[in-house]
């Protein structure tokens, strides 16, 4: 246990300040990468974790999805979209089943989960029959399985999350490169 703090003991004030700064660097670059991804993909949440089995066997709980949401890229039937519904915290990942587009470009569409037997009208807000562009968080473009389980575990057991974060932060602070 003593050896854990050896590096720290040998540091003077300035060296310790440097450790704090480099810790700040790590946090801010992570934030920059996330915000940068938002700009590049046009999506407010470029990476999402699948939480339900309604798109099985394509997506399972814990899969990571990469999204884009380009303005000039029209939504078409058969695409997998991630959308938000008023009154629900968690965005839903489902496939577009029907779509109607007017002359002026306004578009409305209906979605359905591959593993569900009925369309999503029962999931939408009361009285809502269609989704429009403003409900869309992004369109699924890539898949990385299993990795999202980490965030699911962390959200289910907040203690694990705080321990992990504290551990990592402590490690960066007291460990010298």
């Amino acid at each position: 246990m003593d050896s854990l703090f050896d590096d720290l003991k040998r540091m003077n004030k300035r060296q310790f300040l440097y450790q704090v700064l480099s810790f700040g660097m790590i946090v801010s670059s992570a934030l920059m990468i996330w915000k940068g991804l938002m700009v590049v993909t046009g999506s407010e949440s470029p990476i999402v974790v699948v939480l339900s089995g309604s798109m099985e066997p394509a997506f399972h709980r814990g899969d990571l999805l990469f999204l884009t949401n380009f303005e000039q890229d029209p939504i078409r039937v058969g695409e997998i979209v991630v959308f938000k519904v008023e009154g629900r915290d968690i965005p839903i990942v489902h496939r577009v089943l029907k779509l109607h587009e007017r002359d002026n470009g306004t578009v409305k569409f209906l979605t359905k989960g591959d593993n569900n037997s009925v369309d999503d009208r029962g999931l939408y807000a009361p009285g809502q029959l269609w989704l429009t562009k403003k409900d869309i968080v992004g369109r699924a473009r890539g898949l990385l399985p299993y990795v999202g389980m980490v965030t699911i575990y962390m959200n289910e057991y907040p203690k694990v999350k705080y321990m992990l974060l504290a551990g990592l932060a402590g490690y960066v602070l007291i460990h010298r490169e």
Partner: peptide
């Protein structure tokens, strides 16, 4: 693979309709 049959058409109300 997700295979679907889509009907595409123009109607009086809509410039583009796509129905699975």
């Amino acid at each position: 693979l997700f295979v679907s049959v889509v009907v595409e058409y123009v109607s009086p109300m809509h410039a583009r309709n796509e129905v699975v």
